[in-house]
Design a protein around this nucleic acid. Structure first.
Length: 311
DNA sequence: ACGTATTATACTCAGTGTGA
DNA sequence: TCACACTGAGTATAATACGT
């Protein structure tokens, strides 16, 4: 079935590249249910109250449905389609924080011993099912208080837009991500001092999470090596050991998979879709696409559309 | 287990073909 | 004529063979 989905674009929310952030509070009930939709930004959802079923669908994880309730925190990655399903007596109050991946300041990760500092952002959302949803972050009473306080500060600054609000929101938002990562690390037993003894696989998993989050931007081995606190040579060696392929090939495969879905679903030009998945140069995008799929993007789009119309 | 030197390949840029 | 899809060649960067 060729279901055309709305791509919620950043511009719709007034998100501009210099300050790619938006926050809003929403209440859903059976009368105001959203249709399945995808975003071109990351969405962090905090459940203030009520219950619902969260339905989420992505190329990597397939389709999942799970219960959510007050105190739950979930991350919806770019391109993942999701919605909330509510029974006739259910009501859900949530806070949505919408942002571009680069809004998270990864410079914290460069300090030795701190590589798990942003795991809730770089690792948890990329765990394979069921680990991702089984470990969906549920905050206790104290945790929820801390998080609600930060969210409240962000909402106030976002609403009032007084001098320096962007800087203050950046600070609070990054505090939020670090605190959530702390809760996450503690809840999965990867708390303090783990980094010093962390296995190659553990830091490669972080690098993979980082790449999955940032595949749309330029990714340099030197930067990844800094994140992993090792030499470039050591990183590429461990990466191949852990994943069976080189860093660049991994990034390419990821980008092309995303591009394939976009080509079929949206009518943007080949160059635009290439840019969305991280190829600054359309020519190079086409070259890589052809190498990995055996056909050019245009051919792929036409063949897919033909196959769908024949169904 | 790790780093250096060398090789391989990723990426950029200039340009061509095609259809509207 | 223009926009778009694509190709080829040169340069920059990543991957790896080899040595410590």
């Amino acid at each position: 079935m060729n279901e055309i989905l709305p791509l919620f674009r950043s511009a719709v929310y007034g998100i501009d590249p210099s300050f790619p952030f938006h926050i809003e509070r929403n209440v859903h009930d059976r009368y105001t249910q959203l249709q399945l939709h995808a975003h071109e930004f990351v969405e962090l959802v905090y459940v203030v109250g009520g219950t619902a079923k969260h339905r989420i669908r992505s190329a990597v994880f397939g389709e999942q449905r799970y219960e959510i309730s007050a105190g739950d925190i979930l991350i919806v990655n770019q391109g993942e389609e999701h919605t909330y399903e509510l029974a006739h007596d259910e009501r859900l109050e949530i806070v949505n924080l919408l942002f571009a991946p680069e809004f998270v300041d990864d410079s914290y990760l460069h300090a030795p011993g701190q590589s798990q500092l942003l795991d809730f952002f770089y690792v948890q959302p990329y765990l394979k099912e069921p680990a991702r949803f089984a470990s969906n972050l549920k905050l206790g009473f104290r945790g929820a208080g801390e998080i609600e306080q930060i969210i409240g500060k962000i909402e106030n600054e976002f609403g009032a837009r007084r001098l320096g609000y962007q800087a203050l929101i950046r600070l609070s938002f990054n505090e939020l991500i670090v605190r959530l990562s702390r809760f996450y690390s503690e809840s999965v037993g990867t708390g303090r001092n783990r980094d010093v003894h962390s296995s190659a696989n553990e830091y490669i998993r972080r690098v993979v999470g980082y790449v999955e989050r940032r595949y749309q931007t330029d990714i340099e081995i030197s930067h990844l090596a800094k994140l992993a606190c090792c030499s470039e040579r050591q990183l590429t060696r461990s990466f191949r050991q852990a994943t069976g392929e080189s860093v660049v090939r991994f990034v390419h495969a990821l980008r092309i998979e995303k591009a394939k879905a976009l080509l079929v679903r949206y009518g943007d030009t080949v160059a635009e879709i290439g840019a969305v998945v991280g190829f600054r140069d359309a020519a190079y995008f086409i070259k890589v696409f052809k190498r990995l799929t055996g056909m050019t993007p245009k051919e792929y789009r036409m063949e897919s559309q033909l196959a769908q119309s024949g169904e």
